[in-house]
Nucleic acid binder design. Structure first.
Length: 291
DNA sequence: AAAGATTCCAACCGCATGGCG
DNA sequence: TCGCCATGCGGTTGGAATCTT
């Protein structure tokens, strides 16, 4: 039993990537863009599984990656974000432009853990190791465990506003945190991720964080499209009516594939004067269709 | 200089999730 | 509603690089 393997293991390379493989992957993505990782290896002439290609691209080859050592400010930011989010490396990475979740995870395990231990801080709970009273009082639950315990449903028509702050933001300059976190990137990121599994953690963490960190506000607003999910966008037209003034580019990242499809379908029909039903009859979805 | 120990990080693995037919 | 598929995530590992003795 179990799921089928993601690729034909017998005919795939494993281990370190060669320069030639890197070049092939880069060339292919430059030409065709990211996506459809499963079929990419064959298309690019690589004897790798799609997962491996994706990982190599995201963690190593992407042109927007920042190379080099982590700065002191990045260190502190990671510590603070970890105290809020736990081992949600991808969420943490989302706040550090040019850094990947894998890189941050590794860096955490090799450097920051030790750094915190040297400061007498438990890396798991972010509390003083000697502070047994507090630990006992309130913290059987680490951020991760806590996040996993609660269940955030993506309740419709609720614009969730979370106030996250850092109680322990003693050493990082407020302007840095402000700049890195409370900017549009955060909002964009949260919007992008509101469709990801991790959205379930956002609300929970916020409650805990409000208690922990009352001194700094971060408005992390979860964007609109999800609100309509429960209506299965039967109200796609009403959704579009409400938001048609926004550019597609603005909303695309927020949409599920289905929503995107409906959006484009609506635009297509408007453009060519079809009813949505007529337009649907003209539409042929290829087997390999993916957004 | 050599051997063993430790550190580091790229890559792998399995699972969870969402989208689609 | 269900099953399949693609993708993303977090934990783990293997081996190269570096350090210590």
């Amino acid at each position: 039993m179990g799921r089928s393997p993601c690729c034909e293991k017998a005919h795939t390379n494993k281990g370190a990537w060669t320069k030639e493989e890197d070049d092939r992957l880069i060339a292919h993505i430059k030409t065709h863009g990211e996506g459809c990782w499963r079929s990419l290896p064959k298309a690019a002439g690589l004897l790798r599984c799609g997962k491996s290609c994706r990982l190599r691209w995201i963690n190593y080859l992407r042109p927007d990656l920042k190379r080099g050592n982590f700065t002191e400010e990045e260190d502190e930011l990671i510590i603070k974000l970890h105290s809020l989010l736990g081992n949600k490396w991808s969420l943490i990475a989302g706040r550090l432009p040019g850094r990947t979740d894998n890189e941050i995870k590794n860096y955490w395990n090799t450097h920051i853990r030790r750094k915190l231990l040297n400061r007498g801080i438990d890396p798991a709970t972010h509390r003083l190791i000697t502070d047994s009273t507090n630990n006992h009082h309130n913290n059987n639950i680490t951020p991760t465990a806590s996040a996993a315990t609660h269940n955030v449903n993506s309740s419709p028509d609720v614009t969730t506003t979370t106030n996250i702050s850092f109680a322990s933001a003693a050493t990082t300059s407020p302007s840095t945190i402000h700049h890195l976190i409370k900017n549009e990137q955060v909002e964009d990121d949260m919007k992008l991720r509101c469709d990801s599994p991790d959205r379930r953690n956002i609300k929970n963490t916020s409650l805990e964080n409000q208690e922990r960190c009352p001194d700094l506000n971060l408005e992390l607003r979860i964007g609109p499209p999800r609100h309509h999910q429960n209506n299965a966008i039967s109200s796609s037209s009403s959704y579009i009516q409400q938001h048609h003034h926004q550019s597609v580019e603005y909303y695309q990242p927020l949409m599920t594939r289905r929503e995107k499809f409906r959006w484009f379908h609506h635009m297509f029909c408007m453009q060519f004067g079809y009813t949505e039903q007529q337009g649907m009859q003209l539409y042929h979805r290829p087997q390999s269709y993916r957004w």
